[in-house]
Design a protein around this nucleic acid. Sequence first.
DNA 1: GTGAAAGCGCTAACAC
DNA 2: GTGTTAGCGCTTTCAC
Lengths: 331, 331
Amino acid sequence: MNVTIKDVAKAANVSVATVSRVLNGSASVSKESTQRVNDAIRELKYSPNFLGRNLRKCVTNRILVIQPSSDHSLYAKIIAGMSDEAEKVGFDIVTAISNGSRESEKRQMDMLYNRTVDGAVLLGTSLDKDTINSIAENFNIALCCESVHGADVLTVVVDDEAGGYDATTALIKKGHTKIAMISVQGDVISSGLRERGYKKALKDHGIEPREEYIWHGEYEYENAAAATEYFLSLPDRPTAIFAVSDNLAAGVIKTAAQRGIAVGKELAVIGFDGITWCERFVPSISSIAQPCEEMGRLVAQKLIANITEGASDKGRYTLKHSLVLRESTGD
Amino acid sequence: MNVTIKDVAKAANVSVATVSRVLNGSASVSKESTQRVNDAIRELKYSPNFLGRNLRKCVTNRILVIQPSSDHSLYAKIIAGMSDEAEKVGFDIVTAISNGSRESEKRQMDMLYNRTVDGAVLLGTSLDKDTINSIAENFNIALCCESVHGADVLTVVVDDEAGGYDATTALIKKGHTKIAMISVQGDVISSGLRERGYKKALKDHGIEPREEYIWHGEYEYENAAAATEYFLSLPDRPTAIFAVSDNLAAGVIKTAAQRGIAVGKELAVIGFDGITWCERFVPSISSIAQPCEEMGRLVAQKLIANITEGASDKGRYTLKHSLVLRESTGD
DNA sequence: GTGAAAGCGCTAACAC
DNA sequence: GTGTTAGCGCTTTCAC
């Protein structure tokens, strides 16, 4: 199984250079030689060893994608988009899970330094802008989904503020005025922007935002119960809740259901992301959908262009979200 | 950024061999030299180029995992387990999505031939046993979740028949006798075994399996609606449904809900896999849970042992599933 | 159009 | 304990 380019050359009665040329189409080779080489390749079942090729070219054709968590539909969809695009141009995807740990993330990024990958995409990061910028000086990296203030790197996101605005406006149009929001504490930019959009929509429609209607917690499902309990315990209960993620929205619905509250009727709920389970959930969950596959494809395409063409596109690409109304916001 | 082992050697005033020894701890080096080398490494911000190392050693420390579909909690959990185990021993995970396409799968497997990865794990495959066996002759591969009849390769699964038996028995114990099952058509082994367990449980409890209570379709969510409609249309309606996957179970519940049928009360539903959304769903979904993380860890561990120790464990490991009763089967 | 040969960065004999 | 050197498999000048 260890047949090398040398063996092929010998069998085809040409030099290794000629075999290489046939393999890469890098220079013109006579019909006869080409034929003989291809015959030899087939006969010997030769497959070029990429280790040698990559060392020689100092490339890997591989990009790393770091997910803050595994088992998240949003990331899965983005990665699917990336895979799709990467495959077209002969790149592979290496995944790593950071669990939101800075240490872990830094360790994964070593793959850039030791040339295991040609570039990296961070789907959310806990690294600060200085660290990111210093890495970006020497390597091709990109952010997707979640941007970082002051980070001068290729970034692909949706317009979170507009998304928050649209989600809130949709609830207002359904007749709600007492609209609560579950946001994320800390400096998670996307959540802050969605919250800003939420407030702006309220004001634009003559509704004064109320501090007691905003809950700050974590992004994930588990956080929703406490937030929901809190909102339901308010003397002046909100009639609608905008959750900053679909996972949270699912948690809200679950908690409300356990209290016997019919979501879609007594309480409207809308989420953000557009994950697969929005449709499957009972009731199905209205959401601001991110164009995940497209985001994945775009970030892969731009990053790979930076890698292969030596370009250095550090642009910020904002893709269009879409409002998808389902049962959780009623008819 | 292109500092090599040579530069370090020069700066530390030693030979490249000594640097390599310090790097790998492969032989004893004097304290002074070690010190000087480490200083030089720090000073020059040197990071070994794995391309060179890997070519030399003819290893990649990388394993490929092929998922039939992206965005599936079951695979995500298994991959998380694999990642965890792999990271411990310095291996990376490369993911590829086959979409169940044989062509795509074969193309991904080229990574074995061109030495992009040291081994591969198939989470379900559409390759036949002969293809698998012939690949396994030359490369380290493993199956996880889904086995293949006659494939002589490392395999990690649960006892699907016992799982099907337990799911059905749980329904019987809840007092049900009219128990339907949604299975998968074709030669999907796991589904066939679960169905066998289902029939066995019925018989063991004196219930004669009824052909009209078994629906054969596809694994995924979308297939559930038709199956559910069918069961609900039967003159002698089943009171409980065992779905061969949690995704299907969710679909059953969704469809039933749309018909105004209260799952957990009027209709009991149990799934298989133990995906994350079982808990979140309304109602929460009872399931036969696969020990995903553990399966991932085990398959990674065994496969890596085969790779690094030149072992050739082609064993079949059957891990213990667990019955998790939730709201969808009632109290 | 083709071949010889250098060399990508590293490890591992093999000498000393 | 350390240095010299061959060579992993490949691509790519540079001659011819």
